[in-house]
Amino acid sequence: MTKEPRLPLTRIPSGSQRADLLELFFDLAVVAGLALTSAKMAADQTWTGISQGLLVLSTLWAVWVTTTLITDTYSPRKRPIPYLILAVMFGLMLMSAALPAAFGDHGLIFGGTWAAINLGRGLTLIRSLRGRSEQERSVRALVWSLGSGTLWVVGGLVSDPGWRLVVWLAALAVDYIAFGFRFPIPGRPPLPQYQVAPEHLAERYQQIYILTLGELILVSVLSLSHQPFTAGRIGAFGTAVLTAVVLWWSYARGAGATLRAAIESSPHRGRLVQTNPYAHWLMVAGVVGTAAGVERVIAWPGEQPGTPMTALILGGAGLFLCGRAVLEHEVYQRVPLSHVVGLVAAIALGPLAVHLSGLAVSVAAGLVLLGVAVGELLRARRHPAQAPATT
């Protein structure tokens, strides 16, 4: 008897390339992790606390990016992909729950769960893709996951928070290097560039960025609702809302809105696939840092922030501008002068900001972002026919 051929898992080019509702459901777990990350940064106003927050944020981001690449390559409606997404979602939720004490008693849960996600995903895809050429990528990814997973588990077992941070930074570097260089194996030829569905990939990045802004809005509302209303707190709340609007407008009226066209028209589509995660990570980290500052400033608007919190508020604006500049360069092959000026302004405000109140620092960061948005608006009026670069 001959075996009936198995249906391919990959997306059908002629089929719908829109994001599936299961993917949006998965994103809800990401938002929970982002909210806990910003809360951790707001509560621990030290350089160590900020470093720990950025590490856990980068880890959650790696979960989202790798899952999105899978759903971009394989149909989320073909087994076992839906079950794989739900399993990863459970792992992500467990990591988020362990996040507040990730450098304390829950280190092994946080690091071990990420290692288990990588290994389980690799084994599932290897089994599902047996006999197909696509299986090699999953095999290579599993090899790299064994190395990084060992470091994640070892880091979770280390009792000292400082050494745990060092070990986990090494583990995260392995994960990012593996993804960035497409899981190289000595003696084996490089894997081909990622083949993507432009409509789906662009939509997924747009969705996660907007959901991240939703976390900023949620933090603003919840922070104000837990405090007595004062002029200072309402001013801090209004500044937060204005900042959220500017962060949305800058993305929605800039390169973010033309991301699909850029991927479709780019002769270097593979490069866009690999730079998109880093550009959007910078913007997401900027929004999360801003949310952490908002939570603190609404609670104590007249308090003079320390250097780490000042760096968090101004650094949130700076990280967003860096990410927008990278995305703008990849889409339009240029770096807007307004972004450079805004970044320089955010850095220059640092020495002065440590002598100001938290509310004043937030207003200054918001004005920097607003100034960049005005610069973008003026440039758009001078060049209304701006289109993605094709060379």
Rank of each mutant, 00 (worst) to 15 (best):
residue 234 I to L: 15
residue 159 S to T: 14
residue 189 P to Y: 10
residue 99 L to G: 00
residue 240 A to L: 12
residue 139 V to M: 12
residue 256 G to I: 01
residue 301 P to H: 14
residue 284 V to I: 12
residue 205 Y to Q: 01
residue 313 I to V: 15
residue 211 L to K: 01
residue 181 F to Y: 08
residue 182 R to L: 09
residue 197 A to T: 14
residue 310 T to G: 06
residue 59 T to A: 11
residue 344 V to D: 03
residue 68 T to H: 06
residue 111 G to E: 08
residue 358 G to T: 03
residue 115 A to M: 07
residue 100 P to M: 01
residue 319 L to E: 01
residue 317 A to V: 15
residue 45 Q to R: 14
residue 236 A to D: 09
residue 49 G to Q: 08
residue 49 G to Y: 05
residue 156 G to R: 04
residue 187 G to N: 13
residue 245 V to F: 14
residue 155 G to Y: 13
residue 142 L to D: 09
residue 92 L to Q: 07
residue 223 S to Y: 05
residue 312 L to I: 13
residue 231 A to Q: 13
residue 75 S to I: 08
residue 106 H to Q: 09
residue 382 R to F: 08
residue 170 A to V: 14
residue 45 Q to N: 03
residue 196 V to T: 14
residue 201 L to Q: 06
residue 22 L to R: 03
residue 6 R to M: 05
residue 22 L to C: 03
residue 33 G to R: 01
residue 212 T to D: 06
residue 307 T to I: 13
residue 321 L to S: 00
residue 32 A to N: 06
residue 351 P to N: 09
residue 113 T to P: 01
residue 152 W to I: 01
residue 367 L to M: 04
residue 122 G to H: 03
residue 219 V to G: 00
residue 51 S to I: 04
residue 200 H to C: 01
residue 185 I to L: 15
residue 112 G to R: 02
residue 105 D to H: 14
residue 316 G to T: 12
residue 313 I to R: 03
residue 133 S to R: 15
residue 76 P to A: 06
residue 234 I to M: 15
residue 290 T to E: 11
residue 375 G to I: 00
residue 98 A to E: 04
residue 212 T to R: 03
residue 78 K to N: 08
residue 75 S to T: 10
residue 128 S to E: 12
residue 102 A to Q: 02
residue 270 G to S: 09
residue 123 L to P: 00
residue 202 A to P: 07
residue 302 G to K: 08
residue 136 E to Q: 06
residue 157 L to G: 02
residue 94 L to A: 04
residue 65 V to N: 14
residue 233 R to I: 10
residue 228 P to K: 10
residue 216 L to N: 02
residue 49 G to K: 04
residue 318 G to Y: 09
residue 236 A to C: 14
residue 14 S to G: 15
residue 66 T to K: 05
residue 32 A to T: 12
residue 273 V to R: 01
residue 384 P to K: 06
residue 367 L to C: 10
residue 27 D to G: 00
residue 106 H to E: 07
residue 196 V to A: 00
residue 184 P to M: 02
residue 42 A to Q: 08
residue 236 A to P: 14
residue 178 A to W: 05
residue 263 I to Q: 13
residue 224 L to Q: 05
residue 108 L to S: 02
residue 4 E to A: 13
residue 151 L to R: 04
residue 264 E to V: 05
residue 48 T to H: 04
residue 171 A to T: 06
residue 55 L to D: 03
residue 338 S to C: 12
residue 227 Q to T: 00
